[in-house]
Design a protein around this nucleic acid. Sequence first.
DNA 1: AGACCGTAATGACATGTGTCACCTTCGATT
DNA 2: AATCGAAGGTGACACATGTCATTACGGTCT
Lengths: 204, 204
Amino acid sequence: MSQSIRVIVAEDQAMVLGALAALLETEPDITVCARSANGREALSAVAKLKPDVLVTDIEMPEMTGLTLAAEVRERYPQTRVMILTTFARPGYLRRALDAGAKGYLLKDRPAAELAEAVRRVHRGLRVVDPDLAAEAWDSGADPLTERERQILWRAGEGKSSLEIAEELHLSEGTVRNYLSEAISKLDASNRIDAARIARAKGWL
Amino acid sequence: MSQSIRVIVAEDQAMVLGALAALLETEPDITVCARSANGREALSAVAKLKPDVLVTDIEMPEMTGLTLAAEVRERYPQTRVMILTTFARPGYLRRALDAGAKGYLLKDRPAAELAEAVRRVHRGLRVVDPDLAAEAWDSGADPLTERERQILWRAGEGKSSLEIAEELHLSEGTVRNYLSEAISKLDASNRIDAARIARAKGWL
DNA sequence: AGACCGTAATGACATGTGTCACCTTCGATT
DNA sequence: AATCGAAGGTGACACATGTCATTACGGTCT
């Protein structure tokens, strides 16, 4: 047996973090050398330990897994990043690959696939959920501009056009225009519907 | 050492299910005798194996953890149910206890607490997250009526008053009245805000 | 019997929302 | 130099939403 694969796991739900680490520890050729509860912690752990693979969730406090992946690619290219997330959102996959992630695995895949995916990524191979890759292909690119995203996000939180306008220092009419654009781009029937659709695609 | 504690784990995300089982298997006094990906599966596993403890998530396809808990209490009272979930929602806790669950543990608690909680529940003790219990206390009871819940749910999905009215065979004005009631009960500023608040409390 | 609550409805009114046409400014392409 | 697109804006209009008063019916406690 060669050297053991050194892995850091980042995941904000402590119980799930511990459980994933326990799962990986059952593999004789894999060692979990650190566990992090958020992106910032994970980044400093990577800096200190220079692991072979970083397995990370996306939605975390302090720093998201997507930002984390970009930072690690930039500063510690010898560590390969694998995203492990609940969300089968085309937009997330696209952004993850853009950020230099080598793998994208869903939490509803069987537990046995985790160790296998870590080994593949360590060998320099890419691991991407095939169904999701296909969906990402035909679901097209994110049609929203940055402004539309900002505004639609706030609308989805229940804020009125006027509130959003004040928050972003815009006129109320402009906010309504952006929302109208977003609604038509997403083929939605109103702002709530539009926010729902954008969230499902991973564009928000 | 006495007899090992026999546990069934139910969780819809396969990877997390496997990881939690691996975590529990590291304990010498606990045995995972089955794993279920949804509520229906878990119920038949409980029927067949009569375990000491059932650890279950809430949001699952086929049958939710809350319904499952009620069924198990009714039909297999020798099996004690512990809810393990992401959601720190007072309404969920209340409904879980009403359904006869003996424990309510959050996924963002440390991994070490899981085994300890299983042991306590097995001994007949109750395990409830103290912060959440306090919040459940002062957040008061669910103020929504069944009709208000139905209508607010659909409004939160982006449906218009007219669409909701047709779906439930009501007049549009009636739907608007119910929404207005819900908005004022929840101290929200509009339907979206109201749906968001109700979801956060676990009332939707 | 009376009080209370959930359900259901109507009409009226003020505001909020979605759409459209049309305008300006600014930076990046061609 | 000309064109394009993103950002930002105005005004106008139709329709949706939120509020309120008021009515009505059937349960269910006391």
